[in-house]
Structure formats: C-alpha cells, structure tokens
C-alpha cells in the first residue's frame, strides 16, 4: 500500500510541477499585457514575435519596439505608464514565460510554423485574451502524438539535448 502511495505521490509531484505548468494558468506579469488590444488594432503576431517562422524562438519584442509605438500613443493607463518606465530606463521587461520548455529539450518554433501548424494549436485564442493564459501543457506525450500522426521523426535526440 505504501508502495502504491509513494508511486502515486511521485507521479503527482511530476505532473504538478511539470515543465509546461498548468493549463489555464496565468502567471503574474510585470505589466498587464493585453494581447487582444494589440491584435484588434491589426497588429500581426509577427510584428512583435518577429522570428516566429525564421528562428528557433519566436522572440518577444525589445523594449525599444514597445516604446516606438507607445511613444505616440495615449499613456494614461497604469500598464502603459509602467511600460514607459522600462522604456525610459532602457531596461528589458522581465516577462514571465508562459510556455516553459524543460532546459533539456530543443524546440525550433520555425519548423513547426513552416510545417503548417496553426498558431491556435498551441496558443489557442491568445490574440483575443486580455491576460495571457497558458493554453497547453507541454507534455512529451502530446508532442509525440502529433509527431507520430504527422509521421515526423520521434527519435529522442531530435528534441532532447
């Protein structure tokens, strides 16, 4: 019985702190960033996540880029004021990762985009949300299922490093 309990506890521990974190979780961010307001203003995902189909990481905008637009925009809101503090100080904004892959994995964003995966597959309707919510828990099983379905390599070192 105790054996069973410890195994269960072990697996529980693993899933709770699993690397993707909980689905539906929304970590506190340094600035309350609304994806929706940006998307509604016809800003393409690629404008800020400029490397999404060209590099291993999709990229987040540098503070200067945020500043470049917001300089010419109303700055009343608390979030914008906070942003401008970072812009003035020329400091990076310490955004908290939504999709945190374990450090022993390799995930090239570009090849997934180029393979024709839609953004929604992983990111759901983030463009329509006011707070960024983690849509998908990044579990190996989930990756493998898709890789198998799409007949992409499931060789361990393709993703593990």
């Amino acid at each position: 019985m105790r054996f069973a309990i410890s195994i269960v506890l072990g697996i529980l521990a693993l899933s709770v702190s699993g690397c993707g974190g909980n689905a539906g979780a929304s970590p506190a961010q340094p600035i309350a960033f609304p994806h929706k307001l940006h998307a509604d203003n016809q800003i393409d995902c690629a404008f800020c996540h400029e490397f999404y189909d060209r590099h291993a990481a999709a990229g987040i905008p540098r503070t200067e880029l945020c500043g470049a637009c917001h300089m010419a925009m109303p700055q009343e809101s608390e979030a914008t004021q906070k942003l401008m503090e970072y812009v003035d100080a020329e400091e990076p904004i310490p955004w908290v990762r939504l999709y945190k892959l374990p450090q022993f994995t390799y995930f090239p964003h570009k090849w997934h985009v180029r393979a024709g995966l839609s953004c929604e597959t992983c990111h759901a309707d983030i463009g329509q949300s006011m707070t960024a919510v983690r849509h998908q828990v990044l579990k190996m099983k989930w990756c493998i299922e898709c890789h198998e379905q799409e007949q992409v390599s499931v060789d361990c070192v393709v993703c593990h490093k």
Partner: peptide, 9 residues
C-alpha cells in the same frame, strides 16, 4: 521521481 520533477526545469 520527486527529485526528477524538481530538477526537470
């Protein structure tokens, strides 16, 4: 197992 979970990230 617990150690793995903690260390995984």
């Amino acid at each position: 197992t617990a150690g793995l979970a903690l260390d995984a990230c």
